[in-house]
């Protein structure tokens, strides 16, 4: 029984023919996390003198406990994966078309661009560009409608946050505000 044959609302543990590589990667990430915690305790925290002593000073006490707990849980999960017992969440059993996955990636790139552009361009120009790019990525046509919605939405949200909620939005080099 392969992943895609599972029923969409099936959340009970199921034996699968092949454990997805992502499961192993996720497990590996948690092991790495626990090791990282130990590294931080043995490195920076010990150097700063906060890894021992009484309960005030010993900032490593609890992180160490949690890191070991994670390692223990990882061991259980490791055995589960060896037995090819996998519990998949109910929500994401569908196969993603390649094209959509690509759009998701593009959307992520746009977001990164937006965060980079925000401090430089300021809220208003950056947001109009961000929205326009997102709209177009999600197949909004014609372009002028997408552009119009992007501008209006930016102004509306800017108005609510800047004028009503008095938040100081990123100014950028141009210093544009409402």
């Amino acid at each position: 029984m392969s992943d895609s044959e599972l029923r969409k609302d099936d959340t009970t543990a199921t034996t699968v023919a092949r454990v997805a590589a992502g499961e192993w990667i996720a497990l590996g990430a948690f092991v790495a996390l626990a090791l990282f915690v130990h590294q931080q305790i043995l490195g920076p925290l010990t150097d700063a003198g906060y890894a021992d002593g009484d309960a005030v000073n010993n900032a490593a006490l609890f992180p160490r406990l949690i890191a070991n707990l994670i390692l223990g849980l990882c061991a259980i999960q490791f055995v589960q994966l060896l037995r090819r017992r996998v519990q998949l969440s109910a929500e994401f059993m569908y196969d993603a078309p390649r094209e959509n996955a690509l759009r998701c990636l593009v959307g992520f790139g746009i977001l990164v661009g937006y965060l980079l552009g925000l401090p430089v361009l300021g809220f208003y120009p950056a947001t109009v560009l961000f929205l326009l790019a997102m709209f177009l990525t999600l197949k909004t046509r014609p372009v002028w409608i997408a552009a119009l919605v992007a501008v209006l939405l930016t102004l509306a949200i800017g108005f609510v946050f800047e004028e009503l909620l008095r938040v100081v939005l990123p100014l950028g080099r141009f210093g544009l505000t409402l």
């Binding site: 208003y124 102004l155 004028e163 080099r173 141009f174 210093g175 544009l176 505000t177 409402l178």
Partner: peptide, 22 residues
């Protein structure tokens, strides 16, 4: 408010494409 926005925008575009506006 909106006119102020446009004015600032216009001034900003004309005067200082890169420098800060203090």
């Amino acid at each position: 408010m909106f006119t102020r926005f446009l004015k600032t925008a216009a001034v900003a575009a004309l005067l200082s494409p890169l420098g800060g506006l203090v």
